[in-house]
């Protein structure tokens, strides 16, 4: 029996509650017995060595794993108390409420404006409202100043860091309640990293953010809560080792393995 992380019970309401989640890719058991409560309107960081299933876990929240034929989740995940895997829940609706940013910036090969307007247009937002949505979203993504005069330029013509902020603006344009960020800063320049950390600080309090990162300093800087995942034995499923306030994780971790990881002894 492995260590079972206990969710915090310090009052803050939970946006997402995960109970005894097991995840499989076909015969491969990737995650086991994950129980965790993601606090509303806070930033939660997922850390852990490569291949321990952070991305896999993240994709459970917006049911992106549904796109992988062999993938299968057991256990329960609730959003505002409602099971997101219940029959009758449309993953399409779920993904409008839970946006996702990927490691590799993935703007569509179309104009900056059309990129940001993409989500609202899917929902049938009227043309005369789009201008304002595009501007607000780009402002929130810290990209408005750089792009306000080149909105009709192709999104792929931007730098990597700008592209990533464009993707963030694209997600913010649909007003999600939760934003999942899978290593959003690992492929971009330091100035853009700074801008993304800034916008995260501005966004929290408004939406719930989960960020996967390999950068310990970044986790310590941007997050309020941190969850540490680990696959101890190759071939065995990964577990959630420890979950706590970020300050506690980085100053006084309760588990030896957490301490080893954040001090860089492995992973």
């Amino acid at each position: 029996m492995h260590y079972r992380a206990t969710p915090q019970s310090d009052g803050a309401p939970e946006k997402i509650t995960v109970k005894e989640l097991d995840f499989y890719y076909g015969d491969f058991h990737a995650l086991t017995d994950i129980t965790v409560g993601i606090k509303e309107k806070a930033v939660t960081a997922f850390i852990g060595p490569s291949g321990c299933g952070k991305s896999t876990f993240l994709r459970c929240f917006n049911r992106m794993n549904d796109l992988i034929p062999s993938a299968r989740a057991e256990g329960s995940i609730t959003l505002d108390g409602k099971d997101i895997y219940a029959t009758g829940v449309d993953p399409v609706d779920l993904r409008r409420r839970i946006g996702m940013i990927f490691q590799q910036p993935n703007p569509f090969p179309m104009s900056i404006y059309d990129n940001v307007a993409f989500g609202p247009r899917l929902q049938g937002v009227k043309k005369n409202e789009l201008d304002e949505i595009v501007q607000t979203s780009l402002e929130r993504a810290n990209l408005w100043k750089e792009t306000k005069d080149i909105l009709d330029r192709n999104g792929l013509a931007l730098s990597g860091g700008q592209q990533q902020r464009l993707c963030i603006a694209r997600v913010l344009a649909v007003e999600p309640e939760v934003m999942l960020m899978d290593e959003p800063c690992s492929a971009i320049d330091p100035t853009s990293v700074q801008k993304i950390e800034d916008l995260m600080a501005e966004l929290k309090g408004r939406i719930t953010i989960i960020i996967v990162t390999h950068n310990m300093q970044q986790a310590a800087r941007v997050s309020d809560f941190t969850a540490f995942f680990l696959q101890e034995v190759a071939g065995e499923p990964a577990v959630l080792v420890e979950y706590d306030r970020t300050a506690n994780i980085f100053t006084s971790p309760k588990d030896r393995r957490t301490e080893d990881y954040i001090t860089g002894r492995f992973g």
Binding site: V92, R95, G99, F102, F108, P109, F118, V171
Partner: peptide
Amino acid sequence: VPKYIRWGSYGLGATKWQ
């Protein structure tokens, strides 16, 4: 078409046809 283009689209709540 790179799969992350599809992911980005699905991630914004697009249906398969969209």
